[in-house]
Amino acid sequence: GLEHMADEEKLPPGWEKRMSRSSGRVYYFNHITNASQWERPSG
C-alpha cells in the first residue's frame, strides 16, 4: 500500500523500477542517462 509507494519514491532522480520481459526479473532504469542495472541505485 502506501509503504510501497514511499519506498518507490526513495529512488534517485531519473530512476524507475522495471521488469525484464525476458527473465521476469526486476531491474532499475534511469530515463535521464539511459542507464540500467540490476542493483538498486543509491544516492
Rank of each mutant, 00 (worst) to 15 (best):
G43T: 13
Y28V: 00
F29R: 03
E9F: 06
I32Y: 09
E16W: 02
D7C: 14
H4M: 13
H4I: 14
M5E: 11
W38F: 09
I32Q: 08
L11R: 00
T33Q: 04
P12K: 01
S22V: 14
R25L: 10
A6V: 13
G24I: 03
N34S: 07
A35K: 15
T33F: 05
E9M: 08
R25W: 06
L11K: 12
F29L: 02
E9K: 06
S23W: 04
M5I: 12
D7T: 10
V26D: 08
Y28A: 00
Q37A: 04
E8N: 10
S22I: 14
A35V: 15
G14Q: 03
F29Y: 15
W38V: 06
L11E: 15
W38L: 08
G24C: 15
E8I: 09
H31Q: 11
G24V: 03
E8G: 09
S36L: 15
R25P: 03
G1I: 12
Y27E: 05
H31M: 10
K17M: 11
E39T: 06
S36T: 12
H4N: 12
Y28F: 05
E8R: 07
R18G: 02
N34C: 15
K10N: 14
G24E: 05
S22P: 10
S42T: 13
Y27H: 03
R18K: 09
E39V: 06
F29D: 02
S23L: 11
R40D: 05
R18I: 07
Y27R: 02
P41S: 01
S23I: 06
E9I: 07
E9Y: 07
P41T: 01
I32M: 09
E16V: 09
G1K: 13
P12M: 02
I32T: 07
P13A: 08
M5T: 12
N30D: 03
T33K: 04
H4L: 11
E3M: 05
A35N: 09
G43Y: 11
Q37C: 06
S42F: 10
G43N: 11
P12T: 01
S23V: 05
Q37R: 04
G14L: 02
E3T: 11
Y28M: 00
E16T: 08
H31D: 04
S23P: 04
R21N: 11
P13T: 06
W38H: 06
S22T: 12
E9D: 13
G14K: 01
G14N: 06
E8P: 09
R18D: 00
K17Q: 09
P41R: 01
K10A: 15
W38S: 06
M5D: 13
M19A: 06
D7L: 09
D7Q: 10
N34E: 05
E16Q: 05
N34F: 08
N30Y: 04
E9T: 08
Y28L: 00
W15F: 01
R18E: 01
G24H: 08
N34I: 04
H31R: 10
I32D: 07
R21C: 15
S36W: 15
R40F: 12
M5F: 10
P41E: 01
S36Q: 09
R40A: 08
M19I: 15
Q37M: 06
G14A: 03
V26W: 11
L2W: 12
K17H: 03
S42A: 10
S23G: 10
H4F: 12
R40M: 07
M5R: 10
Y28W: 05
G1F: 11
A6W: 10
A35M: 15
F29S: 02
H31G: 07
S42G: 13
N30T: 00
S22M: 07
P41Y: 01
K17I: 10
Y27M: 02
E8A: 09
P13R: 05
R40H: 09
G43P: 10
E8H: 09
E39K: 04
R25N: 06
H4P: 14
G1R: 11
G24N: 08
A6M: 12
L2C: 15
D7V: 09
S36H: 11
S22W: 06
G24S: 05
L2N: 13
S23K: 09
E16D: 03
P13F: 10
Y27N: 01
E8S: 10
R25I: 06
W38K: 05
Y28G: 00
E9C: 14
K10Y: 10
E9Q: 08
E16N: 04
K10C: 14
E9N: 09
S22H: 12
Y28T: 00
G1L: 13
